[in-house]
């Protein structure tokens, strides 16, 4: 039996996934609608919170915005999970992935698929749409190990930022029960994925980064910081503001993104993620995002 730490972890996570297996098609009792006067996202997580743009809204407008904010958050998570599932599927049964890790990847993919079903059902039922992704894929060249590191870092970014929001909302008694429940079940699965992702990413960094030139390492670090910033910028979606009935959606977004209160929120919500990158040496220090 393989005694690598990642394999021991994979066996343990596989057992947990089996013990906590759930059926996405029957798990939720979807309400017909969510009342207009309900919070759909914790107010403190709404992208304008702490700014004058937020305080100038009536409570009814804030609640309406919270409905599109949760739709955007669930859409972002869904859109982030699509390439993640594709990438994980590609890695199944590759010789560089152990049999224990492969077994766990099957659960990882299964759970991510359930999450996409769950987020898609919520968005379609209560918003009538999933917010589309604006990313455009450009081909690029990597040195050995760089693409693998990039992939697992992207996984961590999507999951760690999402998990911060999940933990706040699964404990928030003010928000619509269905939203609370989705955040709870997502967090339960993601905490396993994150445990695996952190260990695997750390092992990849220790394997590949010593083989890279300082220029490649620098390039990779610059890309990662940009990727985290870009992921945060997606939380300030002009389409979401427009749907909530707010004027000048693009200008509103730019102003919200540049506001010190939102920068403080991003720093707080990114602390665990960036702390991991800094602690493992993947980043030299914690950047401002």
């Amino acid at each position: 039996m393989d005694t690598q730490p990642i394999d021991r972890l994979a066996r343990q996570l596989t057992k947990q996934s089996r013990d906590e297996n759930w059926n996405v098609w029957t798990y939720f009792d979807w309400p017909e609608s969510i009342p207009d006067d309900a919070w759909c996202m914790s107010p403190e997580l709404c992208s304008l919170y702490g700014t004058e743009m937020w305080s100038e809204l009536s409570e009814a407008q804030q609640k309406k915005l919270s409905r599109y904010e949760i739709g955007n958050f669930f859409s972002l998570t869904l859109q982030g999970e699509r390439p993640l599932v594709a990438g994980m599927s590609d890695r199944l049964y590759q010789t560089k992935i152990s049999s224990d890790a492969t077994e766990y990847l099957h659960h990882f993919i299964d759970e991510e698929n359930k999450h996409m079903v769950m987020f898609g059902m919520f968005c379609q039922r209560y918003l009538g749409k999933v917010y589309p992704e604006k990313k455009v894929a450009f081909p690029r060249e990597y040195v050995k190990g760089e693409e693998e590191m990039s992939f697992f870092c992207k996984v961590l970014v999507v999951e760690e930022l999402g998990d911060y929001y999940n933990i706040v909302m699964m404990r928030d008694e003010r928000i619509a029960p269905i939203v609370k429940q989705i955040n709870w079940i997502h967090h339960r699965d993601e905490s396993r994925h994150l445990g695996f992702g952190r260990e695997h990413t750390k092992a990849l960094w220790e394997k590949w980064s010593p083989t890279w030139t300082p220029e490649v390492t620098q390039r990779f670090r610059e890309w990662l910081v940009q990727y985290v910033k870009s992921s945060w910028a997606d939380f300030y979606n002009p389409a979401m503001y427009k749907d909530a009935g707010l004027e000048n959606a693009y200008e509103l977004r730019q102003k919200a993104l540049a506001h010190p209160a939102t920068a403080e929120h991003r720093a707080k919500a990114s602390k665990k993620l960036l702390g991991f990158f800094a602690r493992t040496g993947i980043l030299e220090s914690v950047p401002a995002v």
């Binding site: 809204l57 407008q61 707010l246 004027e247 200008e251």
Partner: peptide
């Protein structure tokens, strides 16, 4: 120049 939001 941002103004309090109105339904659009």
């Amino acid at each position: 120049a941002w103004r309090p939001p109105v339904e659009t």
